[in-house]
């Protein structure tokens, strides 16, 4: 069932929803962008439907709603500990199709990886219902969701199309039908992006020998000078899930504290540093290689169905050094094609 809802009515419905749900959406933080007089768009709890930034791509992904950047796992004293709690309210998030597909990857990492469910992820994830936001035609400049097959989804409770005076809403989840009972019924299902200006070719890496050659490609070295290892790309990525765990004792009483986890980045110099100082990926190029292959090779090798990257392009938009991830993937594709060609020529000889 679909409805045409005025902005005023939508705000009333939102108020009703907020009795049970915390509602998150991409919100504009004026002049909080990286550069002076630029805005930052990131997820936060909205107060009205006008808060939703629906006509721009958010700088940060919605992952931080259910996978907080800083999260206390438990608190401890000398003799006891207490697990952290989360808010009783359920959660609704305004998201794009690529993000919904991204959450499926996070689910795989946190819930279906190694036989143990991550309860800290699960306890928030269980509360979530998605409100799908339509993208503009073709998506945004840096989107390459179509290449990654993540431009479509049917995993949502509500879908919305924003207009100037009205919002079209499709309801797939019966729980919400009553809220819209008085609204005008219309024909509406969300339209998905079917072609992006940015396209990528994913290299097919079918042998370990080829993988070893890819490790040694010169292209990675170009990132030693280009990449500043800031980790902006992984911070905004919907599918980056790495964290570090640390015990923090409180300044006023060193016997009391908390164990917390904090998001981490494989692009940082110390990501692979071990006790004793051993480090596996010492250069920015090596770390770039790791991230690239993780997103378009390793994950699928392990979990089979799909690549990790969903092509949201946020890493591209957010990189302060103008390194494009789709361009990197395409560069790798070309290099792999060359390697394959060389191999074929060798075979003939």
């Amino acid at each position: 069932m679909s409805y045409c809802v005025s902005i005023k009515r939508m705000n009333e419905i939102l108020k009703e929803l907020q009795k049970e749900y915390k509602v998150y959406a991409p919100m504009r933080f004026e002049k909080r962008g990286r550069y002076s007089d630029t805005d930052l768009i990131r997820y936060a709890e909205i107060n009205s439907i006008e808060d939703v930034v629906y006509d721009e791509k958010s700088d940060f992904s919605p992952k931080e709603v259910i996978y907080p950047i800083t999260q206390a796992l438990f608190y401890f004293t000398e003799y006891e500990y207490m697990e952290s709690k989360v808010d009783d309210k359920k959660i609704m998030i305004f998201v794009r199709p690529c993000d919904i597909n991204g959450f499926r990857r996070l689910d795989t990492i946190f819930l279906k990886n190694g036989g143990t469910e991550d309860i800290y992820y699960k306890r928030l994830r269980e509360k979530v219902k998605f409100i799908l936001m339509e993208c503009k035609e073709g998506g945004w400049d840096s989107c390459f969701c179509v290449s990654m097959g993540s431009n479509k989804t049917d995993d949502y409770s509500l879908a919305v199309r924003f207009g100037d005076d009205n919002i079209l809403v499709e309801i797939k989840d019966d729980e919400f039908t009553n809220l819209f009972a008085d609204e005008r019924e219309v024909e509406f299902t969300p339209e998905f992006v079917t072609s992006n200006p940015t396209k990528v070719n994913i290299p097919e890496i079918d042998s370990h020998e080829l993988l070893e050659k890819i490790y040694d490609l010169d292209m990675w070295e170009s990132y030693n000078s280009r990449c500043i290892s800031c980790g902006a790309c992984t911070a905004v990525c919907i599918t980056c899930s790495c964290f570090t765990t640390l015990d923090v004792t409180y300044t006023e009483n060193g016997k009391v504290g908390e164990r917390r986890r904090v998001q981490a980045s494989c692009m940082h110099e110390d990501f692979t540093t071990m006790a004793g100082g051993l480090s596996f990926r010492k250069t920015a190029g090596e770390r770039m290689r790791f991230r690239t292959l993780h997103k378009i090779y390793d994950y699928k090798l392990r979990f089979k169905d799909e690549h990790m990257c969903v092509g949201c392009g946020r890493c591209d938009e957010r990189c302060p050094e103008l390194i494009s991830f789709p361009a990197t993937i395409n560069r790798l594709y070309d290099e792999v094609e060359k390697l394959k060609k060389a191999e074929t020529t060798k075979d003939i000889r």
Binding site: R32, G33, Y35, L40, P320
Partner: peptide
């Protein structure tokens, strides 16, 4: 600090 912060933890007061 704002320019280099990957998570937007540092922002400018508008």
């Amino acid at each position: 600090c704002v320019l280099v912060c990957p998570t937007g933890a540092w922002t400018r007061n508008p």
